[in-house]
């Protein structure tokens, strides 16, 4: 790095101030609420409230939904990315285009559309009855919540895996073919290992929002099935117990950060790239 560009580091000053003001301080504030009661005295009860049966039930249900959603998104994403590669659609931005476009139909409206599709006398059941088939009874069950979270977060799994896989040099795969590997072996020994950085970032981008979303459970779970996000939202907007709501949020945040640190343990891809440039 030359003297001309070393001074560049001061350019991130405004951003660092912003980070302190609107990322770090808000987290300190929510932690302060979490560890105090309405009189301002120190307490652990808001944090420990996560162990309360109603809360821990919602927490475990959220965990089940998030794990299920993450696994199903992985299982759906790999074949999709491989299909794109096979059909030579990976060139250009077709994939990005197809996956991002639905995000422009409003988030709440997309979910309401799923509600209409899945409800007991909804569109899918009408079609099934006309075809002489048995109607489904998924409305307001965990299945419809699962469909909702997969629908919302599948693109966040597909895109990073897709980026990792399109970056693979075609020559590497041809070399494997020339050496006699069949397509299963190529996937296991070449494509999958090289896609792991993408898979990791996909997992972090799907697991957290699918665990904490409250709107999806609200609209597709019929209000009976509650995720931890629903409980927190109600503490703020109905029960008005901000200290309890903050306590549950902090417990959730700690869980999320620990599990993500675990997933990302060897994830230094961005840092590696960053260092490369600085050396030059």
């Amino acid at each position: 790095m030359s003297n001309t560009t070393r001074g560049f580091k001061w350019l991130s000053g405004p951003y660092l101030l912003w980070c302190v003001g609107f990322t770090v301080i808000p987290l300190l504030v929510i932690v302060q609420y979490a560890f105090t009661d309405t009189t301002g005295a120190f307490t652990l009860s808001n944090i420990l409230a996560i162990l309360d049966p109603i809360h821990s039930k919602a927490f475990l249900f959220s965990l089940e939904i998030a794990l299920g959603c993450t696994v199903l998104c992985i299982l759906l994403a790999y074949p999709l990315v491989l299909v794109f590669r096979r059909l030579h659609l990976s060139r250009g931005k077709f994939m990005l285009f197809v996956l991002i476009l639905p995000m422009w139909m409003n988030f709440i409206l997309r979910l309401l559309a799923w509600q209409m599709l899945l409800s007991n006398n909804g569109i899918i059941n009408n079609l099934l009855i006309r075809l002489g088939l048995q109607p489904l009874a998924v409305a307001n069950t965990w299945i419809s919540i699962m469909i909702g979270v997969i629908y919302e977060y599948l693109p966040y799994m597909v895109l990073p895996i897709y980026n990792a896989i399109t970056d693979i040099d075609e020559g590497v795969i041809q070399a494997a073919q020339d050496l006699g590997a069949d397509s299963g072996t190529i996937f296991r020994k070449v494509i999958f290992p090289l896609s792991i950085p993408g898979l990791k970032s996909g997992i972090t981008m799907v697991f957290v929002p699918s665990m904490t979303s409250f709107v999806i459970a609200d609209l597709l779970g019929g209000g009976r099935l509650q995720l931890i996000g629903n409980i927190i939202e109600q503490e703020f907007n109905r029960s008005m117990d901000w200290h309890l709501g903050s306590g549950l949020s902090v417990a959730l945040m700690v869980f999320v950060l620990i599990s993500m640190a675990f997933t990302m343990k060897s994830e230094n891809v961005v840092e590696e790239e960053g260092r490369q440039w600085r050396v030059n």
Partner: peptide, 30 residues
């Protein structure tokens, strides 16, 4: 910020990227 980050030394780089990851990793509701 990105221009600044790329000119940082290792320690500043790690801290800044850590801060940048917080809004991405944290749950929206939190």
């Amino acid at each position: 910020a990105a221009l600044g980050i790329s000119a940082m030394r290792r320690r500043g780089y790690t801290i800044t990227m850590g801060l940048t990851n917080i809004p991405l990793l944290n749950a929206d509701i939190v």
